Simulated scan of single mutants.
Amino acid sequence: MIAQAPAPTRDLLSRFESLGDENRLRILTLLDRNEFTVSELVSVLQLPQSTVSRHLRVLADDGWVRRRQEGKTRYYRMDGELESGARELWRLAEGSLAGARWIRDDAERAESVLAERRGRAAAFFSESAAEWDTLRDDLFGSDARFAPLFGLFDPEWTVGDLGAGTGTLANMIAPFVTRVVAVDRSPEMLAAAAVRLGERDNVDIREGELESLPIDDDALDLAVLMLVLHFALDPGRVLAEAARALAPGGRLLVLDMRAHERDEYRETMGHLWPGFTEDQMRDWTRLAGLEAYHHIPLAPEPEASGPALFAATARKTV
């Protein structure tokens, strides 16, 4: 009785047999460089769709290619996780094809197919440029514009969202750091924040004043004051409290209004300060024991009706 070969050897032999057809070699050469649909392969190879589909089925059964579904469209690509024996077998096969007559023709037609695909995307952006920002916000939400920047945060950080309001910022930051401490003076705002942050087990919601934060000394790696400083009776004291809560080397980030003359905001919105100048902010942060102050005036967005903003950063002395 003849013993059967071990499964890995039998699989490798099957893979070897599947390389014994020139059209399958052409398909693999293309799929090793890019992914294609069946119709795109038909265009490149100049073969009937039934032929291309049959060869793809053989290659898929023998583990050479993978497919992914995108809506009703299937994309094929050489399996990027071939075991070492199969990968070496493909290198040998590929090396023997250097002089094949079809290599250049297939490559040229493949580039035309890919250029057409890129052209469809380019045409979309050409037609949609004027509405792209609105369309992107409709599709993904306005947070998608800057949320990836939170990936630059150290995942070990504890971040203070000072003047957290309804928890919008804390909710965005929480997935990227170890802990967020969200502080606000308004019980109503914090109740709304608790609803928003209900599934965030690394957000600590605390009621308190910005001038006397319910946070221990040296507890924060980053303190954020986003559009809240103009509500403070004593902005200098708020910045000093933020500095106290920062660990040595910790960072302060402030986003607020530049100085303006819209006095009506005092009555209609409860603002206590008509924005801030760079000199004011620089002096307050220096007195708070912060260094390396950096002040960045932000370009106003065309649709924004409020005063222009600034962003400011500073660091607690190590």
Score class of each variant (00 low, 15 high):
residue 164 A to E: 00
residue 317 T to A: 08
residue 260 H to T: 12
residue 174 A to M: 00
residue 45 L to R: 00
residue 58 V to G: 00
residue 213 L to D: 02
residue 5 A to W: 13
residue 312 A to R: 03
residue 167 G to C: 00
residue 259 A to H: 08
residue 160 G to T: 13
residue 248 P to T: 09
residue 152 L to G: 06
residue 158 T to H: 03
residue 55 H to I: 02
residue 43 S to F: 04
residue 270 G to R: 02
residue 36 F to Q: 02
residue 144 A to K: 09
residue 276 F to S: 06
residue 31 L to A: 01
residue 253 L to T: 08
residue 295 H to Y: 15
residue 301 E to S: 15
residue 118 R to H: 09
residue 277 T to D: 05
residue 36 F to Y: 15
residue 19 L to K: 06
residue 73 T to A: 01
residue 104 R to T: 10
residue 144 A to P: 02
residue 278 E to I: 08
residue 218 D to S: 13
residue 35 E to Y: 14
residue 20 G to A: 14
residue 201 D to H: 14
residue 199 E to D: 15
residue 204 D to E: 15
residue 94 E to G: 05
residue 116 E to W: 14
residue 120 R to D: 04
residue 155 P to S: 05
residue 300 P to I: 07
residue 205 I to V: 12
residue 134 T to V: 10
residue 256 D to W: 00
residue 19 L to R: 12
residue 117 R to S: 04
residue 172 M to L: 14
residue 89 L to C: 05
residue 298 L to Q: 13
residue 60 A to C: 04
residue 288 A to V: 08
residue 88 E to C: 07
residue 44 V to L: 00
residue 293 Y to L: 10
residue 228 V to D: 00
residue 147 A to R: 14
residue 244 R to S: 04
residue 57 R to Q: 12
residue 317 T to Y: 02
residue 3 A to Q: 14
residue 91 R to M: 03
residue 111 E to L: 15
residue 109 R to A: 11
residue 308 A to C: 10
residue 241 E to Y: 04
residue 202 N to C: 06
residue 156 E to V: 08
residue 291 E to C: 10
residue 118 R to M: 10
residue 255 L to H: 07
residue 83 E to L: 08
residue 17 E to V: 13
residue 18 S to A: 15
residue 199 E to Y: 09
residue 248 P to N: 07
